[in-house]
Design a protein around this nucleic acid. Structure first.
Lengths: 356, 356
DNA sequence: ACGCATATTGCATACGAATGCAAAAATGCT
DNA sequence: AGCATTTTTGCATTCGTATGCAATATGCGT
C-alpha cells in the first residue's frame, strides 16, 4: 500500500522481512512441494502480492542448475510446416513449464557463435528442426549432459535422438501411387541433397520405380527453396522428355512448381502432369493447389520430440532415442488417380494400395 | 589434455587456477572493454580453450541485471507475414548480441501466466507482435523499467512504443485505386475488429469511399483467420448485391477469399470481382493469386522495432516512441486496373495516383 | 635512475534464490 | 501430561560471475 515505487527488483528477502519470516520461507513458498505450513505460506503470499514480487528465474537457475529453457534451432521458416511446428512446440513446452529460446537460420557449418550462446545459457535441451549439428558439437552436448533431439532429420550414425517419419516408405508409396495412376515418365525435384529426409524420400521413390522397371528418373535440384525449385522446374519442363509424373520433395516447393507448370508452361494438372508433394502443409490444401501429398503427423512429431526431451531431462540419461512415425498419402487433385486403392477415412481421401 | 572429462560446469575459477591467475582476470578476459593485459588474456584464453570453458550467461545476468534476452510474443503464425518477421527479428537481435525468447499465442486477456514468465526471466525488452498488453500489464513493465514495443499494432492511449505503417492512408489508397478502376459496389472483410490495424485500414477505406459518395460497404468479419474469412466470403458472395470490389484486411485472408470466389462461386478475377489485400506477403506474390496488395515494409519495421528497443535499453529512458512507416500499393492481377496511376518502379508495379 | 602517472591485478563482496542441517514447533500416542 | 515422531523454520552456505577498491606492476619523461 504505502511502499510507493515497486520497481521490480523485489527480492525474496524483502518479502521475507515484510512477512516476518525468513528468506527460506519465501523460497519454499514458491517451490512446489517444499515443506511449508499453510499459515506461513499465506503470510508470504500476501507480502509478495503487496510488493509485486516474482521469483527471479535467473537466480533460481544459477543454483538449481536448470534454466527451464529449451533452445530451438529452426530454419526454412518460409515453409509453413515450420511455423506450425513452432506454434505447437510453444504450446507443449509452456505446458511443461519450459521456455523456448529461438535461433533461426542454419547451423550446418561450424556455426560456433550460435552454438556458444546455447551453451552459455545452459539450456536444458536443444531441438534442431531441419538443421543438424556437426558431430563435434553434438558430442560436446553429450558430454555437457544436454539432451538434443533432431526434428525431421537424422544423422548418419544414430548418435543423437531424432523424430522422423518413414520417409523411405513415403517415397515408395508415392511411386506406387503414380505407377498405379498409369504414368510413364517420372521426375523428381529434390530438397537439399545431403539431408536425410531428401535422401530417404528419394531412395524409396527410386527403389519402387526401379522395381517396376523405371530407371530413368528426371531429376532437378530444389534445395527446399522456392526460387531454386522454380528454376529446376523450368529446366525440367523445357526438356523434350518432360515427365508426366513428378514427385517434389516437399509441398513448399511443390506449390511453386505447380505455379510454374500452369502459368509458365500452360500445363494442365493433372492431365498433362501429375504432381505429388510431401508434408501436407497448409497451401497444399488450398483450393488453388489441392496437392496430393504424403502427410507428416506434425502434432505427434512435436509431441514425441517434447516427450523425448522431458524424459532425458528428468532421468539424466541421454541415450539416443529414435521415434519414427508414419503418415498417409493424402489424395487431392494434383495427380491422376489410380483405378483403385483410394479410400476415404474421416473425410480425407487416402491412398492405401491393396484396399479398393 | 589430461583433464579427462570436461563435463560442462567449467567455472571461471577453474580456468583461473589453470592459468595461474585470479578469477577476476578470467572474468575480465571475457568482458569486452575490461582492463586486462594481452599477456594474461592469452594465458586465460589458452586455459579456457583446454577446459572448454564458456562464461555462464545465467550467473552473469544475475550480477549485471541484464539478461540479454528479448521476449517476443507473437500470434497468427500461420500468416506468413509473421514467420518472416520472426526470422528478421532473429537476424537483427543476434547481431545485437541478444537472444530471442518466443511466446506464441495471444495474451489479450489477463494472461498473467505468460506474463509472469516474461518477468521472471528479467527480459531486457518485450516485442508484442499482433498482440497487446492490458494497460495494467504495460504499466507494470514501465515501472519495472522494461521497454515494450508493439509491432504492427497500437493502443488507444499512446503509452507504449509502437511500430506501424500508415494503415489509414493504406485503406484510402486502396479505395482510390478501386474507385479509379470503375468499381460500383464495395465490400470489406475485416480482421479482428478491435485491432488498431483493422480499425485504421477500414477507416481510411470508408472515408475515401464516402467522399466519393459510397456509403454502403458490404462487410464481413474475418478475424484474421482463414476459416472465418472463407465463411464471411461465402456469405458475402451469396448476397444478391455482391460487391465487385473487395478489400480484404490482410493477404492471409485474401488468399482464402480468392479461392472461395473462384472455386466455390466460379467468379472470374478480376472480371467479376476485384480483390485487394494488405501486407504483400509471400502467397500474394504467387502466380496462382497475384494479389494486388498494400505492402508493409517488413524489414524496415523490424529494424525500427529493434532500434527502439536498443535505444531504450541503453539509455534507460522508456519514453514511448512511435515509428510510422509507409508502404506502396503493389499492383498485380487480382483487381481491375485504373486507366492511369500505375507506374513501374524497380520492376514492381505500383499505384501512385496523380502519376500517369 | 628516479618519481610520477597509468595500466593491471587480486581480494573481497554482491547478485537472488535454493537447500542441508539442526533447532524449534506442532502433532500423535499412551 | 510426557515422550516420541513428524513437520516447519531459520541459519548459513552455495551457485558462477562482475566489480569497487587497494595493491602492485609497468611505462614515461627527464
Amino acid at each position: 500500500m504505502d511502499s510507493g515505487v515497486k520497481k521490480s527488483g523485489v527480492t525474496s528477502s524483502q518479502v521475507a522481512r515484510r512477512a516476518g519470516v525468513s528468506q527460506s520461507a519465501v523460497s519454499r513458498t514458491f517451490t512446489p512441494g517444499a515443506s511449508i505450513s499453510p499459515k506461513t505460506r499465506e503470510k508470504v503470499m500476501a507480502a509478495a502480492q503487496e510488493l509485486g514480487y516474482r521469483p527471479n528465474a535467473i537466480a533460481r537457475s544459477l543454483i538449481t542448475n536448470r534454466s527451464r529453457i529449451i533452445a530451438v534451432v529452426m530454419a526454412y521458416l518460409e515453409n509453413l510446416f515450420y511455423p506450425d511446428v513452432l506454434e505447437e512446440l510453444g504450446r507443449l513446452l509452456v505446458k511443461e513449464n519450459y521456455r523456448l529460446l529461438l535461433f533461426t537460420g542454419h547451423m550446418d557449418r561450424d556455426s560456433d557463435p550460435v552454438f556458444d550462446q546455447l551453451m552459455q545459457y545452459r539450456v536444458d535441451g536443444i531441438i534442431l528442426a531441419s538443421t543438424t549439428l556437426s558431430s563435434h558439437l553434438s558430442e560436446e552436448c553429450a558430454t555437457a549432459g544436454i539432451p538434443v533431439v533432431l526434428f525431421n532429420r537424422t544423422t548418419e550414425r544414430d548418435a543423437v535422438s531424432s523424430v522422423t517419419t518413414r520417409n523411405r516408405e513415403g517415397g515408395r508409396r508415392i511411386a506406387e501411387f503414380l505407377l498405379a495412376g498409369g504414368h510413364r515418365r517420372f521426375g523428381y525435384i529434390s530438397g537439399v541433397e545431403s539431408s536425410s529426409t531428401n535422401r530417404d524420400r528419394f531412395a524409396g521413390y527410386r527403389e519402387a520405380l526401379a522395381e517396376a522397371g523405371h530407371d530413368d528418373i528426371v531429376i532437378g535440384v530444389g534445395n527446399y527453396d522456392r526460387a531454386e525449385a522454380e528454376a529446376a522446374a523450368r529446366e525440367m519442363f523445357s526438356r523434350p522428355d518432360r515427365p508426366d509424373a513428378l514427385f517434389v520433395a516437399n509441398d513448399h516447393m511443390a506449390v511453386a512448381v505447380m505455379d510454374v507448370a500452369r502459368y509458365e508452361f500452360g500445363l494442365s494438372i493433372p492431365n498433362d502432369l501429375s504432381i505429388v508433394g510431401y508434408d501436407d502443409v497448409g497451401p497444399a490444401r488450398w483450393a488453388s493447389y489441392g496437392i496430393t501429398s504424403m502427410s507428416q503427423p506434425m502434432k505427434r512429431m512435436v509431441e514425441a520430440t517434447v516427450n523425448i526431451l522431458m524424459g532425458q531431462i528428468s532421468s539424466g540419461e541421454i541415450e539416443a532415442e529414435h521415434r519414427i512415425l508414419s503418415g498417409d498419402l493424402i489424395v487431392r487433385t494434383s495427380a491422376r488417380l489410380p483405378k483403385n486403392g483410394v479410400v476415404e477415412i474421416d473425410g480425407r481421401r487416402i491412398y492405401k494400395p491393396g484396399k479398393s
